Amino acid sequence: AEKTGIVNVSSSLNVREGASTSSKVIGSLSGNTKVTIVGEEGAFYKIEYKGSHGYVAKEYIKDIKDE
């Protein structure tokens, strides 16, 4: 049951290796980017990222929809 969301930041949002603010940053997404959410862990969504997965803070994702 995948969902999509939109990155809701003015600059960019860090994509992390794990569901923690201390996890390594593996990339970033600019505002209004559409993401595919494959799961959630605590305050983070697990998303599809560059052929693999990454984690982003839930508070910066809006317009969550079921695909």
Rank of each mutant, 00 (worst) to 15 (best):
I6D: 02
G42C: 04
K65C: 04
K62A: 14
T4K: 05
S30C: 06
T36Y: 15
Y60M: 08
I64K: 05
I61K: 01
S11F: 13
V9Q: 14
S20N: 09
S20C: 06
V9C: 06
K24L: 07
E59N: 07
I47V: 08
S20D: 08
H53F: 12
V9F: 07
I47E: 00
N32H: 05
E48H: 14
E59S: 10
A1L: 08
V38T: 05
G31M: 10
A19N: 04
Y45C: 03
E59L: 07
L13S: 03
V38L: 13
F44G: 00
K24V: 14
I26E: 01
A43M: 15
I61Q: 01
V38E: 04
G39T: 04
K58I: 10
E17C: 05
I37M: 03
G54C: 03
I26T: 04
K65M: 13
S30I: 15
V15M: 02
G31D: 12
S12P: 12
V56N: 00
V25H: 06
A43P: 15
K34P: 14
S20V: 08
E17S: 14
K24N: 12
I26V: 13
G18N: 12
G54R: 02
K58L: 03
A1D: 08
A1P: 15
T33C: 05
I61N: 01
V9M: 09
A57M: 13
V9T: 12
L29N: 00
D63G: 09
I61P: 01
Y55G: 00
N14A: 13
R16E: 01
G31S: 08
E48P: 08
E17T: 08
I64T: 10
G18I: 08
E17A: 14
I26K: 04
A1I: 07
A57P: 14
E40I: 13
K58N: 03
K34T: 06
H53V: 06
R16I: 05
D66R: 02
V15N: 00
G39V: 03
N32M: 14
S20I: 08
I47A: 00
E41H: 08
T33G: 04
E2T: 13
V25D: 04
Y60S: 08
K62R: 13
L29E: 01
G18D: 09
S23N: 04
G39E: 07
R16D: 01
E2S: 12
H53Y: 11
V9Y: 06
N32Q: 07
N14S: 08
I37H: 00
V25K: 07
K65L: 13
E59C: 06
N32K: 09
V35F: 02
T33V: 14
K62L: 10
V25E: 05
S28G: 07
K46T: 04
E40L: 09
R16C: 05
K65P: 09
K24G: 12
E67N: 12
E17R: 05
D63F: 10
Y55R: 00
T21V: 08
V9N: 07
N32P: 05
K3Q: 11
K34Q: 11
E41C: 07
I61A: 01
G31R: 11
A43F: 11
G54L: 01
D66T: 13
S22P: 04
L29P: 00
A1Q: 09
K62S: 10
K3H: 14
G31N: 12
K46P: 00
K58D: 01
F44H: 04
N14Q: 12
V9P: 09
S28N: 12
I37T: 01
G51W: 09
V25G: 03
G5I: 03
E59D: 13
S20G: 08
S28I: 09
V35A: 02
S11N: 13
N14P: 07
G39D: 07
N14R: 13
V7Q: 02
N8M: 10
S23V: 03
S52G: 13
E2K: 15
G54E: 00
Y45P: 00
S22A: 13
K46I: 13
E48A: 10
E59F: 14
K62H: 09
K50A: 13
K46L: 07
Y60Q: 05
S12A: 09
A1K: 06
I61R: 01
G51D: 08
K24A: 11
V38I: 13
E59K: 11
K46V: 10
A57N: 15
I47C: 02
A57I: 11
G51A: 09
V38K: 13
Y49S: 01
S28Q: 12
S20E: 11
K50E: 15
S20W: 06
F44D: 03
L29R: 01
E17K: 05
F44E: 01
K46Y: 09
Y55D: 00
N14T: 09
F44N: 03
E48I: 14
I37S: 00
G54W: 01
A19K: 03
I64P: 07
K65N: 13
